[in-house]
Design a protein around this nucleic acid. Structure first.
Lengths: 198, 198
DNA sequence: GAATTTATTGAACGATTGTTCAATTTTAGC
DNA sequence: GCTAAAATTGAACAATCGTTCAATAAATTC
């Protein structure tokens, strides 16, 4: 008989991620989770400790996936800036249609939670800074290969990109038109816009 | 004897807004609400119908407040663009410290809710477009008084601003530094940044 | 001021929440 | 193949959820 696949923690975490991502922390019940990951309460608590414990592991998994995707784009193109643009398009357009929620799960989490779940809240914040740093690394690569002038402050640019990405994904969730969103991405990485005053 | 203040619906809605704004829809319990607005369940249900009914009224109240603030800034300055900038600063900086949550309540709502609360979700989306339109109106004023060139697409600019505001407030919640955020606002309304490519 | 309508109360409802744990099944060691 | 250890089960717990409604209080009408 085939060796039974031993308990696949990652597969379980992935399923939990989909549910938590879609419904958020509070609207997801343990009984919801039990069905989706096909485990009984005792096993879940033995493995993950609590609803919060599982959520924390889910946050880490989500961030790992995001970072992996960023790395993948970065390795498949010679242009770091283009890798970032692909990452943006993927996060905003694709994830809106295929992912459980168009929202970034980390943003959704810091938006939902309060100090009542302080550990989860600060963990989500921490992971967002990790991703911001990963974008900064790519911007530094862009400097090296001449896509970005040496004088640029990559920390500031990364912060700016992170903020844009938060706005984009949220805007995409609030509005149904994809074309507006594509326009917005082009605005960010390209041309103009702006309200320069005085 | 002084005429007893008749049931002050707005005062009640305001208190409910603060609680819902802070904790979100799901994490706010009716018993929480009962204490904060000092009404018994029967009265609440007679007046607002349900937890959702009260939340819907809260959303409307919140949007009204935002629009009123935008109008106030617009009337206190001769520069429409400056009015927008003041609105941004107020929404991002002030609200982070004084408001129940640094997040925009409408954004927080579309981030939290799913189709399980479809009416509340679409109402929040609708109110966001109302605010976007109000910003567009101000941009049109800016055109009239020469602050914006006649060729500008104010609908597109308003969309862009809305997206920026969503990103800014979310970023401000995720990070504690106010200076970074002020820098970001200056970037939006002013100078440069940018990753112009090809 | 009595009668009638309207508003308010708070105990109670059934459903669901996150979590526990004794009982059972599965695995591992020899 | 028997025994000890580890993992899994699912019924059950107390707490809390959103909501209802008969009983009471307040306001209004004539």
């Amino acid at each position: 008989m085939t060796k039974a696949a031993k308990f696949d923690r990652q597969a379980v975490v992935k399923k939990a991620t989909d549910l938590y991502w879609e419904k958020g922390f509070h609207a997801t019940s343990m009984r919801n989770l039990q069905e989706v990951i096909d485990m009984r309460p005792g096993s879940i608590y033995a493995t993950f400790g609590s609803k919060e414990g599982l959520f924390k592991e889910v946050l880490q998994y989500y961030a790992d996936m995001s970072l992996a995707q960023l790395t993948a784009y970065s390795q498949n193109t010679t242009s770091p800036i283009n890798a970032l643009k692909l990452f943006f398009n993927s996060a905003v357009i694709d994830s809106k249609h295929t992912a459980p929620s168009g929202m970034c799960m980390l943003v959704k989490t810091i938006s939902e939670l309060t100090d009542d779940n302080g550990e989860l809240l600060s963990e989500a914040k921490r992971l967002l800074t990790v991703i911001e740093t990963a974008m900064q690394d790519i911007l530094n690569d862009a400097k090296k290969c001449g896509e970005l002038s040496k004088g640029e402050d990559t920390a500031r640019l990364a912060r700016y990109l992170q903020m844009q990405l938060m706005g984009l994904r949220t805007y995409a969730r609030a509005n149904n038109s994809d074309v507006s969103v594509t326009e917005l991405i082009n605005d960010i990485f390209g041309n103009k816009p702006f309200l320069a005053q005085d």
